[in-house]
Simulated scan of single mutants.
Amino acid sequence: MYNEPIFLAPEFKERLWGGTKLKELFGYEIPSDYTGECWGISGHANGPSVIKNGSLEGKTLAEAWETNRELFGGEEGDEFPLLVKILDSKKDLSVQVHPDDTYAREVEGENYGKTECWYVIDCEEGAEIIFGHHASTREELEQMIDDGQWDDLLRTVKVKPGDFFYVPSGTIHAIGAGIQILETQQSSDITYRVYDYDRVGQDGKKRELHLEKSKEVTTVPHEDPAVDRKKSVEQGLVREQLVEENYFTVEHWELDGAVEGLSDRSYKLVSVIEGEGEIVVDGSSYSFRKGDHIIIPATVDTYGLKGKATLIASHSNK
């Protein structure tokens, strides 16, 4: 029986819009000064996490999902269902939209579409995201895209640290410059670019846009999804539910002291965004610190936490 937390080595992605905050804030060894993404908990083929400890050390999360399904409560599915990232947007990300599961299967041949959510870790004062659009009908959306009426079409929202956004598939969105977020999403890498500010990449060419697919999958009209943040206190742990929906539940944990007897419905994904502490399982302690990404497997019946830290925890609702 695997009776300890699983620590994962993140995978890093260089992006046109990336910077150095992943190193500055979390101490990661990043590949360049254009590092935009840390894939902290990933079973995706484009960047699987590698297990750092225990009897599965050296295996990828995808391999563990394939061969040790008991760690995940016997959950069904060909692929690990969730992907947890930390993003650093030194520059604006492209304006984009993602398909739902049905479109992803029928058009892209992939298992999952992409519903996601964002917790703002830090940002510059006055930083903004694009979240939704102003078109009333699909015809109006298509016309505004064709005419390049981006200032009229796109809806901007100012952000601050601690903000949370639930971004269902079909939502036009973009993370603006100067923002670091933790993103929990379905395990999908399908992105349709709607607008990219006419930028060119390192090859001197503009990046590909996906206008027809974007028009097909965008939800019209845009409606902000309801987010009901709920807090509870368990000993030295304040738990705040950020979202509970079809694919995942995401929580913000503020640890200050100790909590014992935690038990999860199955396996839990945990990312440490501030501080340090210990996970205690059957009298054994496992130290964690800011920047760590951890899975508490379903084979751990109960566990405790000690320390002073801020964590984002999630689980699959499949």
Score class of each variant (00 low, 15 high):
residue 2 Y to P: 04
residue 3 N to L: 10
residue 4 E to T: 06
residue 6 I to M: 00
residue 7 F to P: 02
residue 9 A to P: 11
residue 10 P to F: 07
residue 13 K to Y: 08
residue 14 E to N: 15
residue 16 L to A: 13
residue 19 G to K: 06
residue 21 K to R: 15
residue 22 L to K: 07
residue 30 I to W: 02
residue 31 P to D: 05
residue 35 T to M: 08
residue 43 G to L: 10
residue 45 A to K: 15
residue 50 V to R: 13
residue 50 V to Y: 05
residue 59 K to H: 13
residue 60 T to A: 07
residue 63 E to L: 11
residue 63 E to R: 09
residue 65 W to N: 09
residue 67 T to I: 15
residue 68 N to D: 14
residue 70 E to T: 13
residue 73 G to V: 03
residue 75 E to I: 14
residue 76 E to F: 14
residue 76 E to K: 15
residue 79 E to S: 15
residue 81 P to F: 12
residue 81 P to R: 11
residue 82 L to H: 01
residue 85 K to R: 14
residue 87 L to S: 12
residue 89 S to Q: 04
residue 90 K to S: 12
residue 97 V to R: 08
residue 98 H to N: 10
residue 100 D to P: 11
residue 102 T to A: 14
residue 103 Y to I: 08
residue 104 A to F: 02
residue 112 Y to K: 09
residue 115 T to L: 03
residue 119 Y to T: 03
residue 120 V to A: 09
residue 121 I to N: 07
residue 122 D to Q: 07
residue 124 E to N: 11
residue 126 G to L: 00
residue 127 A to D: 03
residue 131 F to Q: 11
residue 133 H to D: 01
residue 133 H to I: 03
residue 133 H to M: 05
residue 137 T to N: 05
residue 138 R to D: 02
residue 138 R to A: 04
residue 141 L to V: 03
residue 144 M to D: 03
residue 144 M to Q: 03
residue 146 D to L: 12
residue 146 D to F: 11
residue 152 D to M: 12
residue 152 D to L: 14
residue 155 R to D: 10
residue 158 K to I: 00
residue 164 F to Q: 08
residue 165 F to E: 09
residue 166 Y to R: 06
residue 167 V to E: 10
residue 175 I to C: 10
residue 176 G to F: 06
residue 179 I to V: 11
residue 180 Q to T: 15
residue 188 S to L: 01
residue 188 S to M: 02
residue 191 T to F: 11
residue 191 T to D: 08
residue 192 Y to R: 14
residue 193 R to G: 13
residue 200 V to I: 15
residue 201 G to Y: 11
residue 202 Q to K: 15
residue 203 D to I: 12
residue 203 D to C: 06
residue 205 K to H: 07
residue 206 K to T: 00
residue 212 E to V: 05
residue 212 E to Q: 13
residue 213 K to F: 10
residue 215 K to M: 04
residue 215 K to F: 01
residue 215 K to Y: 08
residue 217 V to M: 01
residue 217 V to C: 04
residue 218 T to P: 02
residue 220 V to E: 01
residue 227 V to P: 04
residue 227 V to F: 01
residue 230 K to T: 13
residue 232 S to W: 13
residue 233 V to W: 06
residue 239 R to G: 08
residue 241 Q to P: 00
residue 243 V to R: 02
residue 246 N to C: 01
residue 246 N to M: 04
residue 246 N to I: 03
residue 249 T to M: 00
residue 252 H to A: 13
residue 254 E to C: 12
residue 257 G to F: 12
residue 260 E to Q: 13
residue 263 S to A: 13
residue 263 S to I: 06
residue 264 D to P: 09
residue 264 D to F: 15
residue 265 R to I: 15
residue 267 Y to S: 12
residue 270 V to C: 13
residue 272 V to S: 03
residue 275 G to P: 02
residue 279 I to H: 00
residue 283 G to R: 00
residue 283 G to T: 00
residue 287 S to M: 11
residue 288 F to H: 00
residue 290 K to E: 04
residue 290 K to Q: 12
residue 290 K to H: 00
residue 291 G to W: 04
residue 292 D to I: 07
residue 294 I to N: 04
residue 296 I to V: 13
residue 297 P to G: 06
residue 299 T to Y: 08
residue 305 L to W: 05
residue 312 I to Y: 10
residue 315 H to W: 12
residue 315 H to D: 03
residue 316 S to R: 04
